[in-house]
Design a protein around this nucleic acid. Structure first.
Lengths: 348, 348
DNA sequence: TCGCGAGCAGAAAGCGCTTTCTATCCTCGA
DNA sequence: TCGAGGATAGAAAGCGCTTTCTGCTCGCGA
């Protein structure tokens, strides 16, 4: 029925052990023997049985990449970068081939845990968690426990764009400096002369949301400017679109709106236009992340650029063990303010 | 060290067989026994060993989703939809949990084959291939052979947005009617009065590219209008941006440009604006796919909407066996022309 | 010439689970 | 009261691979 190692061994007139060694290339095998084995493999069209080999070797070549929303380019870009870094890691020696798989949690804590368990079942070689996490203490604890357990079992754990787990010093973490980015963005607006600034935030219980918002407030406080209206919602266009009505209702004199991210900002822009307000003439708008489409928006979006691709690549390397973990386990990745056409001094 | 089935069995004072049956829920176990086992599982924090169980059962709970570019929302949306459909499939009986993993091929045939092999190694329960494929005969044959082999071994194979493999009647296929979509889009432009239409196509050797282009040409031929300049390039913004110069150089009198997809269209729009040309005043622009940002572009993009989400969900269900395959294995999924502000009658 | 170690191949013991086949215990119906 | 048969639980044989431990064969120095 299916071809097994033993079949190959028989055909090559060697023992199964030898075939295994040829395939894994971690034990000396005479060139002539190797050749004979390889020929048999080829002739029989043999495919290694992954589960069997993982079982025997007690390791697997799976690397899990967990993202909150795979349809969001924010995650897509990071995941793609990580995946390519992981794929490249393979190019070296035989057997180094890792299967990077991305799992979509949809921001749901249960799914996150489910995927983690499934990955744990598979004895994944590494796991990368991308993007902000929920701040629910219970879920945080559950996740931390699970990750600790996995790390203990030899799975490398990497955090990318998510704050490090408090107690744990063993997982490498690349965290985006959302707070500083948020601060800088608002400082830019304040510098332009805005004093009535609305804020469309992400879901209230996410780290990313909180940090960006805190940065915003820091800037406001430092300048002695009162905080404007804030609305929470998901990280999508519809949320931005819907938020505008509420923001304007709460303060019709708003001259600027900061959005949770670029996607939300696009929604804000659309809603503003529908109301006949010009950008940045009537209202300035700013986003976050600098996603690819942001430069093409009209007007082009002022935003904070995050090194999504680079971080993804580094996360992938960390997962492969190709790159050393940052000094204290955690490295803060700064964002860069990108000023474009959607922000300008307030009218008058 | 690690907790095994036997440990749980010992603690629950039953045989390993019984524990296995409780966990898989496919054999009658007395309620009291089950409870005892579950308690032991919980107390010991036992996690099933995936490889071992896959080996013994000769199946696994992995479902592979291959996409060309995970950073592209076109794929992100489909993959996300498929993944949620696959996750839901689990909700029923215990043990139905499948791990949907998305693999990024970057449009590279080698990587596609590599991932397929890796999935084959893992004895994946199903594989979904998303998006157009390369038209290289050799690669096509290699892929077809591999898929046939996998199907034979019990892996369900689903194609989504990719033409069916010629010889094979066993794999379900959802194919987008790119040709009809392309035709309709160009008919719309012709109806508006355009006769000098440029085309920014995708990579020359992809099915998606060819079908859309053929539809375009059909419309042109039917109307007796001569074909305008065509430029090939990747499916990204930069390609659209770069193509404009060449298109205009070849025919400075162009009144409309059709892009391979919305992302490319965005690049076209940006380049047009940089040259001081207005849209649709000077040049009409049309895209394809109706990605989320297209409605927010200024002007909003005329495009062809593909039911990306729905198709993804259906592909997921097909992979789970939750939905019956279409009658002849293949189903053609139509696109819908969406007319927005980026197209208008040519000036004068 | 003999012995020793390097170099290579094989034997065999699992890895942790599933599943068939068996054994046991009841519960009924006659 | 006895036997048949349903309902559960256990024993044990693998699933296909990796890897340790052994064993053999040479080549070379003494």
């Amino acid at each position: 029925m299916t071809v097994t190692l033993a079949d190959v061994a028989a055909r090559a007139r060697v023992s199964p052990a030898t075939v295994s060694r040829v395939l894994n290339g971690n034990y000396p095998v005479a060139a002539s023997t190797r050749e004979r084995v390889l020929k048999a493999v080829d002739e029989l069209d043999y495919v290694l049985n992954g589960p069997a080999s993982s079982l025997a070797a007690a390791t697997s070549d799976l690397v899990g990449v967990l993202v909150n929303d795979i349809a969001d380019p924010f995650f897509g870009i990071m995941a793609s970068a990580a995946q390519s870094a992981i794929g490249e890691g393979a190019s070296g020696r035989a057997g180094g081939e890792k299967l990077a798989v991305v799992c979509n949690t949809n921001g749901s804590p249960e799914r996150e845990l489910t995927y983690l368990t499934l990955l744990q079942r598979q004895r994944a070689a590494a796991v990368i968690l991308m993007g902000g996490s929920l701040e629910d203490p219970e879920h945080l604890a559950a996740t931390a426990a699970k990750l600790a357990r996995m790390a203990e079992a030899g799975t490398r754990v990497v955090l990318c764009g998510r704050p490090p787990v408090p107690g744990d010093a063993h997982t490498a973490a690349l965290v985006f400096d959302n707070r500083a980015g948020g601060r800088r963005l608002t400082e830019h607006l304040l510098g332009l002369g805005h004093t009535r600034i609305g804020y469309v935030a992400g879901p209230a219980d996410r780290t990313t949301t909180r940090h960006r918002l805190e940065g915003h407030r820091e800037a406001l406080a430092a300048a002695g400017v009162a905080e404007g209206p804030t609305v929470h919602g998901p990280y999508d266009r519809a949320a931005g679109h819907a938020a505008v009505a509420e923001l304007l209702a709460r303060d019709p004199g708003l001259t600027a709106i900061v959005a949770a991210n670029d996607t939300v900002a696009l929604g804000v822009c659309a809603a503003l236009r529908e109301r006949g307000l010009s950008i940045p003439g009537d209202v300035s708008v700013a986003g976050f992340d600098d996603l690819p489409f942001s430069v093409d928006a009209v007007p082009a979006l002022t935003t904070v650029r995050l090194p999504l691709h680079d971080s993804g690549v580094r996360a992938g390397r960390l997962a492969m063990g190709t790159e050393d973990a940052p000094a204290h386990g955690t490295e803060t990745v700064p964002g860069e303010l990108v000023v474009r056409d959607s922000t300008a001094p307030p009218r008058g």
